[in-house]
Design a protein around this nucleic acid. Structure first.
Lengths: 232, 232
DNA sequence: GATCAAAATCTTGTATGCAATCTCGATGCT
DNA sequence: AGCATCGAGATTGCATACAAGATTTTGATC
């Protein structure tokens, strides 16, 4: 239910929630369901069912579904239910290849444009993340991991770049939630993150750029896939 | 009007158009209006007006506006009309920086993955474009220019990359339509295109990657802006 | 004449109704 | 049994009605 003020079990939108946010609330709710596999790949999004589940009407729900389609999380076909995008290994390779490349630019620009405060903030998040690593707290680790990456891209001060990153990030989250994380991979991911913050502190754009794209290519290798051409 | 079957001047949706395409038709119509400055930057998109102009109701129109918002062509704010995104030089720099970087990856991958047929197709389009250049036919030149770039990115066989390219391309078109094209810039753009097809023919990924990102940075210089760090 | 308040008007956000299309099982035929 | 056809129910596409928020106009007061 999107209306947290209503009694549990209530179906109607009822009172409580102020208007004007149903659309974005529905986007977040649906995105969460998809990323968490509550709506698995291939599942149809039946408007009527989701409406009663979320307690809203079809109009904002349909707009939310369009938004998710533009993020690539669902696929539309005319007169048919939208379906959660299937994840295949080829598309996952494309995805990691692309977001790694975006972050390569982000890292390079961030080294040139980030403020000292941003660099400090990223360092703070990094060491908090490391502590979650040693506590084996995967959930909080991932949350910080994501925020670190986004903050770096954000520090690149390129609105288009951040916009594209925000489109791909949920897909990456979903792909990650589908794969098992091996302890060795987790360990080297942490090491790569250390290299990232070091490069940023040194304002070494070439190094940060290299580490960030390689970071994703390494994740790709976990899937047993060959790296793309010309990168090694 | 989206209903090409109805008589000119008719306002109502009337008969003729089969259902199921109003949304995408509206997206294209609105995108055209924005790119052509029929709806200039800052202009509000009043739903009622656009509905009567396009001859559709608010439901598909609103979905179209959401789609344009996800492409960055309009900006939404709650309880207020969507407005056509303002173009400022900083955002244009971001945009060209980003799409150039996307195409750098596209070019590199295309050299490794494009089929011979695709390479031939790109060459054919290239020489047709050159002929439009000598005929001073800017409209057809630009159309082919765009298709060449898209075909190269498409030949990279990376679905995510193409998806992102399709988001940025309309914004680039719009930015281009706002700036005057100087003859010298046009001439060097043609030369850069020649270098592109040469690199592709030679399957020289590094060279094509370099030319494609530089291609946009050169366009950026026309705006009197400094290039981003670490690229020269 | 200027300023502020209140109401009329306009615009968006959401819900709902109707028609077109699709799904899928039932029915009949070979 | 296997396959094509038909139709009832389900589901989407679009239009419209109504409510809430924003804007503009009006009018009273200083």
């Amino acid at each position: 239910m999107l209306d947290e003020a209503s009694a549990p079990g209530a179906e109607a939108p009822a009172g409580g929630r102020r208007r004007g946010q149903l659309h974005s609330a529905a986007v977040e709710a649906l995105r969460g369901m998809i990323v968490s596999s509550r709506l698995p790949p291939g599942a149809p999004l039946r408007e009527k069912d989701l409406c009663s589940e979320l307690g809203i009407s079809r109009t904002p729900l349909r707009e939310a579904i369009r938004t998710l389609a533009s993020e690539g999380l669902v696929r539309l076909s005319p007169n048919r239910s939208a379906v959660v995008t299937e994840i295949d290994v080829d598309e996952t390779r494309d995805l990691l290849e692309t977001i790694g490349h975006l972050e390569a630019l982000g890292g390079r620009l961030a080294c040139a444009r980030a403020s000292e405060a941003e660099v400090r903030e990223i360092h703070a998040m990094h060491y908090r993340m490391i502590s979650f690593y040693f506590e084996n707290d995967f959930t909080n680790y991932l949350d910080l991991n994501r925020r670190i990456h986004r903050t770096i891209v954000s520090a690149a001060r390129n609105a288009s770049l951040l916009e594209l990153w925000d489109i791909l990030a949920p897909q990456v989250d979903r792909a990650r939630s589908m794969t098992k994380l091996y302890p060795e991979r987790w360990k080297s991911a942490v090491a790569e993150h250390q290299a990232m913050v070091d490069a940023l502190a040194a304002r070494d754009g070439a190094a940060l750029s290299e580490v960030m794209s390689q970071h994703y290519l390494n994740g790709l290798a976990v899937l047993g896939m060959p790296p793309p051409p010309d990168l090694g």
